[in-house]
């Protein structure tokens, strides 16, 4: 369950990065559709956070430590909302570039989360 979510978040984050990267290339600020995309990725991140916390509460412990895992989870959930707000107040292509950077960071965080959890094994 959590592995599938991790992969889903990583893939949608990369798609968002490509989309906002294209907007940067086109010299456009983030538009409504981009914000809907950000909302989808953010929602997935929050779902992942909730599912992971439930799993932790059930006694499953991540391979590389709970503290690191929770820190990465929070970072992953906060990534897109934070950069989204940054792009709200930067109505140029650089706002789009900011979201692109945030989405790439999120994808990297998901890879790390996969490792920390001990992905594939359970």
């Amino acid at each position: 369950m959590i592995d599938a979510l991790t992969i889903a978040v990583a893939v949608t984050a990369l798609a968002l990065a490509a989309w906002c990267g294209f907007a940067t290339y086109r010299d456009e600020p983030t538009k409504d559709w981009h914000f809907i995309g950000m909302a989808v990725v953010s929602l997935l991140g929050v779902v992942q956070l909730i599912v992971a916390v439930v799993q932790l509460a059930r006694g499953r412990s991540p391979d590389q430590g709970t503290a690191i895992f929770v820190a990465y989870l929070i970072g992953a959930a906060a990534c897109i909302p934070a950069t989204g707000f940054m792009s709200l107040s930067e109505r140029t292509r650089w706002g789009s570039a900011t979201v692109t950077a945030g989405a790439v960071v999120l994808a990297v965080l998901e890879v790390r989360l996969f490792d920390i959890w001990g992905g594939g094994s359970a």
Binding site: M86, E90, T92, W94, G95, A97, T98, A101
Partner: peptide, 13 residues
């Protein structure tokens, strides 16, 4: 602001 916004984000991260 501008390109600096991207820098602020990356430095923040």
């Amino acid at each position: 602001t501008g390109p600096g916004r991207l820098l602020v984000t990356l430095y923040g991260v």
